[in-house]
Every structure is written in structure tokens, then in C-alpha cells.
Simulated assay, not measured.
Amino acid sequence: MSERTWSPSAVELERRDFRRARTVRSAALSAVSTVVVLGVLAWLITHSAGWPRVQETFFSWDKAVDSFPAVLKGLWLNIRLMLICGVSILVLGLTLAIMRTLRGPIFFPLRLLATVYVDLFRGLPLLLLLLLLGLGVPALRLPNVPIELAFWGAVAIVLSYSAYVAEVFRAGIESVHPSQRAASRALGLSSGQTLRHVVLPQAVRRVTPPLMNDFVSLQKDSGLIAVLGAVDAIQAARIETASDFNYTPYVVAGVLFLCLTIPMARLTDHVARRQGWHGSGGTL
């Protein structure tokens, strides 16, 4: 007896042709509308009265080439800061979240400490923390205390971001249904084993997109250490600008930051879609 091969019906083929044609039509309309809008904006900008002056001051190719090595060298400090702070923030944020979710009266001091920490550093602006720590602590000249501006800038960023990340982790932990804990305890796991092997894996997986979004913000906010005088990409651009008041180095720094943040943002969207975060969104 020979196996019967399945083939789509005529109705199914028509549906596929219709969906394919609609997809092509939507893509064509999107491309045309995008080209028209960008073309109109480009024409309005380039034909404005002040465009020659703006082009000379912000988009000078010669100035961009001259300042690029210095700005790129400064960006290396931002990258190192992002990596070191990112790991520290994850560790500290997860620790704070676990402290806030501990049950029982014996853990009340830990819950109180974590709550005060989160409320304090979520309430203080990051820029204010940078100024207080980056300018205040080195001025005290305490023995055996680092005075590097980049170090205290990193400390301020970790303190501020860990408070927000702790709340993200806590939301993930508390989103795990209590039945998961009950089932784990019924199987003989201790509270610590339940947290490590059952609760945390689910919680981390659920909050991965928000955590990645916070890392995108961290990539940008690492440039705030320029207010302390540390020579990062923004400070290097400021130094290059001071020689002739041509602001093209700032544009160069902005482009370099975009090269870091845009791929990470697209990766965040991809992970979010895979986890169903955008499943109910609109379509073009």
C-alpha cells in the first residue's frame, strides 16, 4: 500500500498567494512612505537658511577625521565601565532582590536594609550621586581609599542601577507561582535549593528583556562620568571641541554610542519577541 502524499487544496493555495501579495504590498508601501518622509525632511533641512552654518559646525568631515582617534580612545573607557558595572549591578541587584523576598521574622533586618537601599538610591538622581562620590570622596583624602575619578563614577553607577535592577529581579521572583515552591518543598528540596534550582531560573528568564533594556540605558549613562573630568568619549569630544568650537566631535561620540546601543536594542527586541512580550502588538 503506497503512502499518500499531502498537497494543499486550491483554496489553501489562493490563501497563500493572497497573504504573499499582501506582504509584498505592505513592504512596498512602507518603503515608499519611508523614502518620501525622509526625502522631505532632508530637503527641508538642507534648504533652510542656517544649514550651511550647521553643516560647518556639526558635520565637518575633516574635523570628524581629526577627532575620531581621540574620541574612540575615550570610548574604550566607556566600554570597560559598562562591562565592569554591568556584572556588578547584576550581582548586587540579585542579592538585594533575594534579601527583599526572604520570608520569616528572622530575616526582617535584611529586608529592611534592602528596602532602605532601594528607596535611597532610586530616589537620588544619578548625576547627583556622581558629583557627591566623584568629587566629594577624593577630596577627603582618606587613607587607602582610591581617588580615581573613573572608579567613583563606576561606584555611583552601580549604586544607582542596582536599586532599579533589584526591583526587576524581585518582580521576576514574585511572579513565580507559590505552587512551584510548594511542589519543590514536597519533593524534599530545602528553601535555599528551591530558590536556586526552581525559582531563580524561572524569574531570570522572565525578566531577561527588562534587564537587557537596563543594560542599553547603562551604555548611554556611562557617558555621565564626563562630568567628573574622566576622559571618556564625551570628555574627549569636549577637549577636541575646545580648540576651535567646532562641535563635530560630539556628533562623532554620538555615532559611536549609537553603534553600541542600537545592536543591543535590536537584540533586546528579538529576545522579547521570542518570549512573547510583543505577541499582542499591532502590525504594519
Rank of each mutant, 00 (worst) to 15 (best):
R205G: 11
T261Q: 10
P209W: 11
L113Q: 05
A28S: 14
S60T: 07
S217H: 13
D232I: 02
R22F: 09
G282A: 11
I89F: 04
R185W: 15
A226K: 14
R273W: 10
G279N: 13
V145Y: 15
S222K: 00
T208W: 04
V255S: 04
L128F: 02
W51A: 12
P52W: 05
T5M: 14
G86Q: 09
H47S: 11
R238N: 06
M212Y: 10
G192Q: 07
H278K: 14
V227I: 13
T46K: 08
T5C: 08
S243Q: 12
S190C: 07
S7C: 14
L267Q: 08
R141I: 06
L187T: 12
V251Y: 03
P201M: 13
R196G: 03
L72V: 02
Q193Y: 01
R238A: 10
L112A: 15
M212K: 08
T23Q: 13
R16P: 09
T101D: 07
V227S: 13
F121V: 00
R16N: 07
P143T: 13
S30I: 13
G223Q: 01
V227T: 10
L159R: 09
Y250H: 01
G123F: 01
I45N: 02
F245A: 14
R53M: 07
A27V: 05
Q55Y: 04
G188I: 06
T34P: 02
M99I: 01
V204P: 02
T46Q: 10
G104N: 04
A226R: 09
L44N: 06
T5R: 14
W152L: 08
L258C: 04
T194F: 00
P209V: 01
L102K: 09
H270D: 11
A166P: 00
I79H: 07
L218A: 06
Y247C: 03
S175A: 11
H47E: 07
L41D: 12
L113S: 06
P143E: 09
I45D: 01
L256P: 00
S160H: 09
R80I: 11
V35S: 05
D244C: 10
W277H: 12
A272S: 11
P69W: 02
G86A: 12
F107M: 14
V91P: 14
Q55H: 06
S280R: 13
L187I: 15
E167N: 05
R238V: 00
E56S: 15
T46A: 10
L258R: 09
R206T: 14
A49C: 05
F169M: 09
L224E: 00
L13K: 13
L94K: 00
G134H: 02
L131P: 04
F108P: 03
A42I: 10
P138M: 06
S48R: 10
H47T: 12
M264Q: 13
G39M: 13
F59G: 01
T115I: 09
A272N: 11
V116T: 05
G93P: 03
P105R: 13
S162T: 09
V199Y: 00
E14H: 15
R238I: 03
P52A: 03
A265G: 10
K220D: 00
T101C: 12
